[in-house]
């Protein structure tokens, strides 16, 4: 799974497989992070409006 593991080989098949898996995980992770960050910002903005 990672280059420091015994099974890892440096060739195209490995890059494609792990690249695709990593890409999918990254997209989902980035999407979730975006939602959490935006939700925090929106909630804080509402708090500021409430204070005014």
């Amino acid at each position: 799974m990672f280059p420091f593991l015994y099974e890892w080989s440096w060739y195209l098949g490995q890059y494609l497989f792990m690249g695709a898996a990593g890409f999918a995980i990254s997209v989902v992770g980035a999407g979730l992070t975006y939602c959490i960050v935006m939700s925090i910002i929106h909630t804080m903005q509402e708090d500021e409006h409430a204070d005014h």
Binding site: V28, G31, E46
Partner: peptide, 24 residues
């Protein structure tokens, strides 16, 4: 309110999650 915004924001980018789901 946080969960309210979270649900809204997740709906906004649901196409990204759906596309990843289709690929997988």
């Amino acid at each position: 309110r946080f969960f309210h915004h979270m649900a809204h924001n997740m709906h906004e980018i649901m196409a990204v999650f759906a596309a990843t789901g289709v690929f997988l």
